[in-house]
Nucleic acid binder design. Structure first.
Lengths: 128, 128, 128, 128
DNA sequence: GTGGTCTAGACCACC
DNA sequence: GTGGTCTAGACCACT
């Protein structure tokens, strides 16, 4: 797990995105213990308060669960992880398509296959 | 022309994006006169200083030109508009593909046709 | 507006409750500007970070809205305020009734009239 | 006897509350032998140190008594149980009424009958 | 002057 | 050692 930040967004928000991605993409697995707040802070080279703010948000989303004196863990509810994954995915696709529409793109065809097994989903847009 | 803003980004930046889009997509046509700063301010319900700031940046990009006595106009250099358009487009496509990679999407196929005349460009990605 | 804290709960949480109550009970009125983060911090004799954490949560609930450079305002959506009020009220009533059940109270009759105009609601419980 | 915990309060405190409730409500009867610390630990799925801590506190209150060789027993002093019961009851009622006042409830009428035999007590509040 | 971010560092309760 | 809280103080962008 590595973390990189730019100056466009607040660091804690970038952390939320990147941690969520690590869970969604399976780098952090369901039920796995995540590094302690202080370890995480070292790892990401960020103050522990900033990490905590980020982890709280990830917990609000539901991807991690806190067990006060034992640490924080990735949720074991796989359906929830999938649900969040789908939400983020379709959100990104919608924003992307809207952006291209605003630029005035004439035709856009998009085929996404989420996993090797799943059938591919298709989105198409032709300018009116 | 309508404008919408959220609280996450500076308003002047959102204005730059939206005005640029209106030029790139042809809503504002090459050579067309642009509303005055005050008209713009009314239209977007934003302080006129903010509009000024935004229009200056759009002018830096080159999409509009100031004629001291007559006001501001969309540039007539169509190649420039196309260049900016291509920059924004490829930027958005790259960011989008990177985002999906991070989520762990398996396969992504993207076909974009910018105008009725242009040939379509194709991007493909299969997870390693 | 005055604020008092005990040591049982985190201060920011008590702030959320008390600020929400001020909005729900009409001390802070819909659309009203609330004190700036720093003024608020002075008022409650608390660090500005603590206030901000609290105000963020109140905003998540929906009772206040932030306008970045102008300040924070009570929402103008009166139905939302009423909805939150009802949620908190029924939550408290349910918890209260459950608590008494656990203690083994034999019979409980509770009549609540929310406003002078509204009809009174009645809750009753007899031990099984 | 079942036990449930949340993350907001110390587990031992939640144990104190729940064990006390079981005694007060008569699930654990006066003079009855209490499960051993280890049995309790299994039952509540909690570390035995935490159970110890909780039982000690319940003993401080007076609801249970330790007999060195035989284990722990619910007190036989029924008046004491009733006294604790009344304390908790009136405490909860007062907090509840205060909470509703803060929300701005107009009128509140509360009738509690503790046991089949006792007369009912009545609390009333009308907003000033 | 407005909200927002981030850090450093101290302290607490729980186990 | 775990998460959580709070403060003090600096800094930033926007209007």
């Amino acid at each position: 797990m590595k973390f990189k930040f730019d100056n466009e967004f607040p660091i804690h928000q970038q952390l939320v995105d990147q941690i969520s991605n690590y869970i969604i993409s399976g780098v952090l697995k369901p039920g796995e213990k995540i590094p302690s707040v202080r370890e995480f802070a070292d790892l990401a080279e960020v103050n522990h308060n900033t990490i905590q703010k980020a982890l709280n948000k990830v917990e609000e989303i539901g991807l991690i669960i806190t067990n006060r004196t034992n640490g924080k863990f990735v949720t074991t509810e796989i359906e929830l992880i999938d649900k969040v994954r789908d939400q983020i995915l379709s959100e990104k696709i919608n924003v992307f398509i809207d952006d291209l529409k605003k630029i005035g793109v004439y035709q856009l065809q998009l085929i996404v296959k989420e996993t090797k097994e799943k059938e591919s989903e298709k989105y198409e847009f032709i300018r009116s």
